[in-house]
Write a protein that binds this DNA or RNA. Sequence first.
DNA 1: TATTTTTTTCAAAATATTTTGAAAATTCAA
DNA 2: TTGAATTTTCAAAATATTTTGAAAAAAATA
Lengths: 168, 168
Amino acid sequence: MELKEAKDKFIHTWGTLATQWGINRTMAQIHSLLLLAPKSMNADEIMSELQISRGNVNMNLRDLMDWGLIYKQLLPGERKEYFIAEKDIWKVAKQIAKERRRREIGPLIDAMQDLKDGIKPDTAEKEEFLKIVNDISTVSVFADNTLTSLLKADENWLVSSFIKVFNR
Amino acid sequence: MELKEAKDKFIHTWGTLATQWGINRTMAQIHSLLLLAPKSMNADEIMSELQISRGNVNMNLRDLMDWGLIYKQLLPGERKEYFIAEKDIWKVAKQIAKERRRREIGPLIDAMQDLKDGIKPDTAEKEEFLKIVNDISTVSVFADNTLTSLLKADENWLVSSFIKVFNR
DNA sequence: TATTTTTTTCAAAATATTTTGAAAATTCAA
DNA sequence: TTGAATTTTCAAAATATTTTGAAAAAAATA
């Protein structure tokens, strides 16, 4: 397997997997292209490399910046904007985890809180309902706190603390 | 807010959030309906409650069983199959985490391994490429192991071990 | 300021996913 | 067995999401 072939396979695989986890294919492909690129790239280069439209490239570059996975780079003497990916994979993993926590756990906590606030446990049925809502609330707050604690720590601490926990 | 209203809001919210995390709306709605139901329900009851087709109900009930979130219950004297949700929210959370680990992390580990196996580091460029592949491999194996260890433990151990880790 | 380059927006088109519903397969009782 | 009840399948329809590309906006230059 030659390098070009391997890189294409990497980009394709990353794009396919992404759809399994709620991220769109193009965003993942642009991300992996930049991850493998030795230099920063501009919109035109990404367009021609992945054969996609300018609008699509622009929209996904902005999303990737929102996710904190790529940075804009302004090169002196260049009008065009260049983009470069965060290459530290631990940071990438942390950013992804952080964003997914925000998107997936946050709204769940809020929704359960609204239900708790909006209903009084004045019948047995309502109590039963609130029991479930409370349980979900507890579990999601727990998951949120756990992830938050992990993400605050730096990566070395992260690794070593897990080794400590799971080796005892 | 009355009970019926709160339950509908719960089902609706669960369905909407699910789409954010790669689970389809109907599957989430059926799950929440069964989670809140005092008794097990059959396909016809689910159809009329959620106003969806028989095929859709059938397909999603099977998916929910695959996820280990609901169980089939055969009632004596009844021809129809009844379904009941796992009510222990810790178990539910564990099942969801387990399934997502399998779907999201597993394929990533396999893909990186294929790339590692398929390419020789005989040029500087290839070495650089393999560095990234290796990093992703390491992080995803780490995440996989961490989750696996957590999921093997029972929930009390889970809670207390996290408290230990994060309080020191 | 006017002109050119680059980025952004967004309605329409293309693509992907989900849902339907009727037919086929399966299960169960007599 | 047969026949009725129930579940499953899957092609077509409906819906949702993504992508395009041209026009508008913004930014840089002269």
